[in-house]
Structures are given as structure tokens and as C-alpha cells.
Design a protein around this nucleic acid. Structure first.
Lengths: 225, 225
DNA sequence: CCGTACCAACTCCTCAGACAAGCTGACAAC
DNA sequence: GTTGTCAGCTTGTCTGAGGAGTTGGTACGG
């Protein structure tokens, strides 16, 4: 223990160790961990270090401590951090996930869109048009994402909207990289494809909206390779 | 402060207060928080209490502390806990999300499935057939989910697979509720629909696989209302 | 004028000890 | 048997001390 290279604070290492033991089945769901003093002695660290480790796992909703009673396991593993999953994932995998969400979103939007949704389309499309002509990259990216979000929002499905928002940071980074390699700004010229998606939703044609959404996003995916 | 009813430990209250201030814009993304002693004085608590609060928010990926440098904001709000989002979400919204994932999964599987995937289909379908005839509800549910997971897995897309796994607990609960109201076990009789999905993937027909997947899940969704 | 080495002040990190507050089970009194 | 009490456990909080890492200024040498 004393010899090991310390890249992380002791408290973090202790948290990882506890998480490992929980995952290995040493303590079942709902089980009570040994007392702080016992754990401190076991891991060879001070009591306050153990407390911080437990606090960290409490923040990750794995442990729960009750004064006077003890520390208890409330989850066998840390909830998947989606931002981390997406960061590590291959960009084509992410784009295929986005395609699944947006295609279905466009399909549902075609039957559920309200007048407010259509107004939102007009606004975000006009904004995207302006940004495509003269705005710097980051402005354009935000305008583009705003329209795509408007489509998903029009599906009036909280899960799909939340999924889209989860994907946004990763998509944004990918677009930044993509635009850097795209000196001709070819990507900005597909305003027509966006208008077409909005038109299909406006016309209440689910299959067409889904098809056009799929077509557009497939093109984006292809342009990556 | 002394008079207030203390239902939560001070460290937790301090964490909530810090989270509130971050959300209110007091500290921007990437900004450095005041030192431990300063914060402790501001909130009227001890230094170790502040440290535990920071540690909790570090576990939630909102703060990050670097020895010698300070504590920094790395997210403006706590990451959405997907399990929690799905628990609160309307079941039809969840099923529509599942439909988006599985339909696209089936489509991709039709062009990427390996011999191992097909073997997996055979195995899980046979298992589901047996369970549909005589097994108790929870066995049947696991067998059904195993086949659906096999389909998504055959798409060979880590993001889609992870999404499916995120949805599973919520879907499982919904199925339990559904089967309780389904005395005739009608739901168990759609083995043919599952075989049909597997056949389309086996035949490398993306559109057909997607259509059959969509049809099956739409039927499930309709049976809920 | 520029670059380097040094250093002081600041930060978080860890430990130890003390006491408060809350829970639990055993045991005595009724 | 039921109830009340309490001792012994647990976590919660504070304080003081020193260790370790970062940062920015400053003096020195070129």
C-alpha cells in the first residue's frame, strides 16, 4: 500500500476499493458495511478519509449512511454515467443512436405537432439559415442543434427529449471536429434537407418525416468516414 | 441556523447549497470556488463538513478538486439519473423510446448479424417458447427480454446496447404490471411475431426487420391503454 | 531584454482526538 | 408480557497540526 504510486487522492482510491468490493459481492444489496473505524483500519487510512470515500459513493447513490445505524449498500454498481459512456463511444455508434432517436421523434412529431411547434420550426430554421451564411462555427452549430431539438420536442415525449439532450454535448464536439476538416463549408449547404423535414412534419406525414430525417442523418454519418 | 429542524446532515445541506449556488450562476463552468476555510466560514460549518460536501458533489461529477490548485465547477447541474428519469416517466413515453432503439437496432442487425448472433437468436427464442408455455411470470419476462436484447446486441452498436440496458429495469416493472392484468396470458402467444423479427434479420432485410420490430412494439404499446 | 531557478504563499490532503447526536438491544421494573 | 431505561455501539461535526502540490512573483544570470 505504501509503495503504490499515488495518482489519485487516498479518499478516491478508498472509494474505488469499496466499489470494487461491493461489485465483487462482498456486501449484498442492503447490507451494512463495517464501522468507519474498522474500515479505516482495514484499508490503512484515517477515519476522515473513509468518511470522504463513503460520501463520494453516497453522491453516486451507491451507499447511504444513517447516523447511529451505519452505512448501507443501496446499489450494487454506480449508475452508468451517460456522458462518460458517450465520450468513450465511437462517434458512428453515437450518430446511429441519434438517428434512432430523431427518426422516431420526427415520426411522432408528424402526428403530434402543435401550432407552437410549427412556429418553433420557422424560428429555428430562419436562424439556422442566417448562421449558415455568415456566422462562426459555434454559432452555426448551436443553430443547427436548436432546430433538431425543436423536431424532437415536437414529438412531445419526455424520454426522447431527455435522450436527445444527453447526446447533445457529444454531438457538439463531433460537429466542431467535423467543421474543422470542412473548409468548403459543404455541411452548411444542406438547409434544404432541414426544410424538407419540417415540411413533412407540417404535412402530418409520419413516414415521410421519418424517411427524410433518416436520409439527412445517414448523410451526416457517411460524411464522417 | 441553530433553530432549524435538521433532517439531513450538515454536509448534505452544504452540498445542496453549493449546488443551488452553481445553478444560480454564482460560479460559472470551470470557475474556481473559494477555499475550504472561506466556504466553511460562509456557510457557518466546519472545514471537514465542507470537504464532505465537495466530495459528494465530486461523486456526482459536478465539482472536481485538484490538490494545490482549488475546487472547480465541471458541470452546471447534477447529471440526470436515467434510472430516476425513467421511473418518473410515463410508460408510453418509455415504450416509444424503446421502440426507437429496438427498431433501429433490428435494422442495423439485419446487415451486421454474425453467425454467433443467429445462434443467440435460436437459443433465446427456444427459451422464450418454453417459458411462454409453462414458466412463472418472472421467468417468462426474463426470457422475453433476453431475446429482445439479443436483437439489439446483433446491431453491434455499444450505444444502442447500453441504451437498451438502461431501459430494461423500467420495462421489466411495466411487464410485471401488465401480466398481472392479463389473466388469459394473451401476451405470451406472440411467439410468431418474435420469430418473424429474427427471420427478417436472418434474411438480411433491414426494412423488413425494422417494420416487424415496429409492428410488434406498437402492439405492445397499444395493449397498455 | 529574456529566460531560468528559486521561493513564498496559497491550495487541497490526511491524520488524530474530542465530543455530540442518534440507534439498538439487553435488562430491570412494573 | 409490557414498558422504561440505559449502556454501548454507530455516524456527525469540529479543531489543530502537518504533508504535498500548484501558482505566481522575484531575483539572478545570460
Amino acid at each position: 500500500m505504501l509503495v503504490m504510486i499515488r495518482r489519485h487522492p487516498l479518499a478516491e482510491q478508498a472509494a474505488e476499493e469499496l466499489l470494487r468490493r461491493i461489485g465483487s459481492g462482498e456486501w449484498a444489496l442492503g447490507a451494512k458495511l463495517p464501522g468507519e473505524t474498522t474500515l479505516a483500519a482495514q484499508l490503512g487510512v484515517g477515519r476522515s478519509t473513509i468518511r470522504e470515500a463513503v460520501r463520494e459513493l453516497a453522491g453516486r447513490r451507491v451507499l447511504e449512511s444513517r447516523q447511529g445505524a451505519g452505512v448501507f449498500v443501496i446499489a450494487l454498481q454506480a449508475a452508468e454515467d451517460w456522458d462518460k459512456v458517450l465520450r468513450k463511444a465511437d462517434i458512428t455508434d453515437v450518430l446511429e443512436g441519434r438517428l434512432a432517436i430523431e427518426t422516431e421523434g420526427a415520426r411522432l412529431a408528424a402526428s403530434r405537432r402543435t401550432p407552437a411547434d410549427l412556429k418553433n420550426f420557422r424560428y429555428t430554421l430562419a436562424d439556422r439559415q442566417r448562421a449558415a451564411v455568415k456566422a462562426p462555427d459555434d454559432w452555426y452549430i448551436e443553430a443547427d442543434l436548436a432546430f433538431h431539438r425543436a423536431v424532437v420536442t415536437a414529438a412531445h415525449n419526455a424520454v426522447l427529449t431527455e435522450l436527445f439532450d444527453t447526446f447533445v454535448p457529444r454531438i457538439r464536439r463531433a460537429m466542431i471536429d467535423m467543421l474543422k476538416l470542412d473548409e468548403e463549408h459543404r455541411h452548411r449547404h444542406d438547409q434544404a434537407a432541414h426544410e424538407a423535414i419540417a415540411d413533412a412534419i407540417r404535412a402530418k406525414d409520419p413516414d415521410l418525416a421519418a424517411a427524410r430525417s433518416r436520409e439527412h442523418l445517414s448523410a451526416v454519418r457517411s460524411s464522417i468516414r
